[in-house]
């Protein structure tokens, strides 16, 4: 896989210098196993940051640590410093619901709830903001629009089950569901790995357009995808952050041997 072949559709647009996520010496343990071995990493506001690396390198763990999705895993522990929008999500007395409201997440496999498309999206804003009626309808429509799904479902989205959509549509529904809570940061854990190339293309376009207003962090196995959509890329290996740089730099001129080997497709 040669980086020069991946056509970049996202030349570092709209990135700012304002740091929105900052990790210092972040360590994560699952029982005795150390999954993240002291990560120092900052993510700036807006734009897309891609996390790449071989399987089990810790990139997903890092992503899921950001919105505390690992809490459920027995033996999970975190040390070090993590600041998201000025707050440590692991601090005592933190408002977990607010964290989840600010940091949305999309998963590897689309996971729509077995309800109507409308209900799938409405459940978040209804719980968080207590809105109902026409206000809610408007939010749902906006979220569907933002996820580029509105035109396809506008006729029967109040009746049709989310599960009856195609895989790509389901994933966009999940993105709409997340957007309806109005997050600042969007985490995506290999969002296209279960999708066909055409659906993947549409999601990638969506990611780019989202990055105008949200900070997107995406874990991907697909180096071309990272090149196409991201403004920054971070390479993880064995639970460590090997290298992080603007995407074009990292692919064109990796500073570390491991990075060079990985992006040139020698392993991974």
């Amino acid at each position: 896989m040669n980086h020069s072949q991946g056509a970049s559709i996202n030349p570092a647009v709209n990135t700012t210098d304002e740091v929105i996520v900052s990790a210092k010496g972040l360590r994560v343990y699952y029982g005795d196993k150390e999954a993240l071995k002291g990560i120092d990493f900052s993510i700036t506001k807006l734009g897309v940051t891609a996390l790449i690396g071989p399987s089990g390198c810790g990139k997903s763990t890092f992503l899921r640590t950001l919105n505390r999705m690992n809490d459920r895993i027995p033996g999970f522990r975190v040390t070090g410093n993590l600041i998201i929008e000025g707050e440590n999500p692991y601090a005592k007395g933190v408002d977990l619901l607010e964290l989840r409201r600010k940091v949305g997440m999309v998963f590897q496999k689309p996971n729509p709830f077995p309800k109507s498309i409308y209900e799938n999206i409405a459940v978040g804003p209804r719980a968080h903001y207590g809105i109902r009626g026409s206000k809610l309808d408007q939010v749902v429509e906006e979220a569907l629009n933002a996820a580029a799904l509105w035109d396809e479902v506008k006729d029967d989205y109040k009746r049709k089950s989310g599960l009856s959509l195609s895989g790509g549509q389901q994933q966009r529904l999940c993105i709409a569901r997340m957007l309806a809570v109005n997050p600042d940061i969007v985490l995506m854990d290999e969002p296209c790995s279960a999708l066909d190339p055409i659906s993947t293309g549409r999601i990638e376009e969506l990611i780019v357009s989202l990055s105008q207003t949200k900070t997107v962090v995406i874990v991907t196995h697909n180096l071309q995808q990272a090149e196409r959509v991201s403004s920054h890329t971070a390479f993880f290996m064995f639970g460590e952050l090997v290298e992080a740089a603007p995407t074009e730099e990292l692919f064109a001129n990796p500073q570390r041997d491991a990075t060079r080997d990985y992006v040139s497709g020698r392993f991974g």
Partner: peptide
């Protein structure tokens, strides 16, 4: 995105609602 962004996601009312 007007209705959506106007919701905000961090204010005192929401924190109260959260608790």
């Amino acid at each position: 995105m007007d209705a959506l962004t106007s919701l905000g996601n961090h204010n005192e009312l929401l924190t109260k609602r959260d608790s």
